[in-house]
Design a protein around this nucleic acid. Structure first.
Length: 595
RNA sequence: GGGCGCUUAGCUCAGCCUGGACAGAGUGCUUGGCUUCGGACCAAGCUGUCGCGGGUUCAAAUCCUGCAGCGCCCA
């Protein structure tokens, strides 16, 4: 309703400005501060004042007088306050908002008929997911959800780097070492199992690391084997099926473990897209041919490179080595052309350390004739560990996502159990409920904490802060959802039904009106979050929303109100629950029915 | 040396893209509120050179510019 109202007001204001004999580029439409009881406002009188030769308040009044509220959808009245023109909504705005928000798909915008692929996480399958990387799936999944709510047809991709040196080392190490030589895995999970080989392999190859001493000759022999593997799956001379199979076994196993961890976060993918796919199908070779024929292509220091200096990138982009192998970014370019062929838009969520690489990729794709306007990247900063904090049992390697989630769920469980005794509500929580709540609250707190912040800002990870269950966190919002559910189930028992034909005059207190206003904004918040790829806006909104709901909850008892009012309020509660549930859904945070 | 990003209350952060109503939350500290639909709650109070300087504008946390600190990347 808010979006319709905003459009209607913009049209009416535009016409009013013309009718008053003015011209302006920007109508200055904005949401007024909280203490102003209007749904929309305009500061258009300021820029017009000098042309009018009159003070802004006078211009504002002049423009306001040109608008006939009766001819504008949802507009009750236009009032000025000093230089501002304020727009107040009518009763049908309340009715239509609460009715629309009663539908389960509230916030879901109509289909745009456009497809978008969101690539995120894409961590190299070398071992367990690190907490520093956890920002990627959390932000990426929320962006995907926001786009989906905004009407895009969304696919979520994990790009698997299965063709680099790292994977060759891994495949070699997996065959080179015997399980009996390795320490016990830290967890009974495939990624923890396999990472032991990878670590042992790297220690073996590093002459300075005496965990696995090796002679120079041994290292040389190993390097030769690794080189052969790389050439095999990097497609030199047509590639090598055997090398591909050897690396795939390792990749699949580790990926399976990583996928389990991401599942716990509630993050899943439509497709795991393998880098080797673009070697095997010939698209990388074909792309290299096109790159070599570009004016910017040079052959220097025994490698084919692209000179991008005229585009402001001083570093040459090497796309084929002298030995015939291609580079990661070359294959990624083929990958992106594949995306362009199959989707209308592509979004990539990626660490800020890949900025240069990404700029090179973007330019290269342009030089190859692609329209890179359809490609957007979202960068996030690394998550730092505070000194003395967060060191894993595995020394010096930081915190794994699994450890973070274990700790989060454990702390949530302690919280649930501590509160069991003084619950006002006399429902019985079974042990299964406690499990569920601990999981929902624990993982929800982690996701909310991370998604609520702008990705560009560096975060320092601290246990206590990340797992703070106080206000401005997931549980605060989840609690509102549980409250709504509680009211609804009580209402059902008391045979109070939602109003079939809502009378907006039954919702006339300031708290009810404020809640309706917040509910109405939800689709517009989704739209903005999706357009700007900024899911943290949804987090800010839902937190504010929870506060508005709690004010309503305090002032407006539902079940004890007289019957007509009780029904109207119950309808509002249903609308509020849908709003909170769907906002949390975008953020990837569970909305518990009880907690 | 070059490029990009960040800097707002003691602490953690919104607001900046698209300039406009007294700069907002949480946390912390002080005080008050459960015979009531769920107290993981609510209300009141305290806390700011919006990193620093300059510019544009009727109006700058917001736009431009120089500098500093921090982070990331490149040679």
């Amino acid at each position: 309703m808010f979006r319709q109202f905003r459009t209607a007001v913009a049209d009416a204001l535009d016409a009013a400005v013309s009718a008053a004999g003015y011209e302006v580029d920007d109508l200055g439409i904005e949401e007024p501060p909280a203490d102003v009881d209007a749904t929309l406002a305009s500061s258009v009188a300021f820029p017009l004042a000098s042309a009018a030769g009159a003070p802004p308040p006078q211009v504002a009044a002049e423009i306001a007088a040109e608008i006939d509220p009766a001819s504008v959808d949802y507009l009750a009245s236009v009032q000025t306050r000093g230089p501002y023109v304020n727009f107040h909504t009518d009763e049908s705005y309340v009715t239509d908002t609460v009715t629309a928000a009663g539908a389960d798909d509230w916030g879901q915008l109509p289909s745009r008929g456009e497809s978008v692929v969101v690539e995120h996480t894409s961590a190299n399958p070398t071992g367990p997911v690190h907490v520093g990387r956890a920002r990627n799936p959390i932000v990426g999944d929320a962006i995907s959800n926001a786009l989906s709510y905004a009407g895009y047809d969304v696919d979520r991709h994990y790009y698997v780097n299965d063709a680099g040196r790292q994977m060759a080392v891994f495949a070699w190490a997996y065959e080179r070492f015997d399980e009996s030589e390795l320490p016990a895995p830290e967890r009974d999970k495939p990624d923890y199992d396999l990472v032991r080989y990878y670590r042992a392999g790297n220690a073996f190859l590093d002459p300075d690391d005496d965990t696995w001493p090796a002679t120079e000759a041994e290292i040389e022999a190993a390097e030769a084997e690794i080189e052969a593997l790389m050439k095999g799956f990097e497609g030199v001379a047509g590639g090598d099926e055997d090398a591909y199979e050897r690396v795939t076994e390792v990749v699949d196993t580790v990926l399976d473990g990583m996928r389990q961890s991401l599942d716990r976060l509630g993050v899943s993918f439509d497709e795991f897209v393998r880098e080797t796919r673009f070697i095997r199908d010939g698209s990388t070779d074909e792309l290299v041919d096109r790159l070599e024929s570009l004016d910017e292509a040079v052959y220097e220091e025994e490698a084919w490179q692209l000179d991008l200096s005229e585009f402001g990138i001083d570093k040459n982009f090497v796309f084929r080595r002298s030995n015939g192998t291609t580079l990661y970014t070359t294959r990624d370019a083929a990958h992106h052309e594949w995306k362009f062929d199959n989707y209308d838009r592509a979004v990539t969520v990626i660490g800020e350390d890949h900025k240069l690489t990404f700029d090179q990729l973007d330019l290269t794709l342009q030089l190859l004739g692609n329209d890179t306007d359809q490609l957007t990247q979202v960068f996030y900063s690394w998550v730092n560990l505070a000194s003395g904090e967060g060191m894993s049992t595995r020394e010096g390697t930081g915190v794994d996502l699994d450890e973070l989630l274990d700790e989060a769920v454990e702390r949530a469980r302690a919280e649930v159990e501590a509160r069991l005794d003084d619950r006002l509500r006399d429902d019985e929580l079974t042990p299964a409920d406690v499990d569920r709540i601990a999981r929902q609250v624990g993982t929800g707190a982690v996701r909310f904490d991370i998604v609520a912040k702008q990705p560009a800002k560096a975060i320092t990870f601290e246990w206590d802060r990340a797992l703070d269950f106080e206000a401005q966190s997931a549980p605060y919002v989840q609690y509102v959802h549980a409250r709504c559910c509680g009211i609804e189930s009580e209402a059902a028992e008391a045979a109070v039904d939602p109003a079939s034909d809502l009378d907006p005059e039954r919702l006339d207190t300031p708290e009810e009106r404020a809640l309706v206003r917040e509910i109405a904004r939800f689709p517009a918040v989704i739209e903005t979050a999706a357009e700007d790829l900024e899911p943290h806006r949804v987090a800010a909104y839902v937190r504010q929303f929870a506060e508005t709901f709690n004010a309503f909850y305090r002032e407006c008892p539902v079940l004890s109100a007289e019957p007509e009012r009780a029904s109207a309020r119950l309808t509002l509660v249903v609308a509020a629950r849908n709003t909170v549930a769907n906002a949390l859904d975008v953020l990837g945070v569970d909305a518990p029915a009880s907690m």
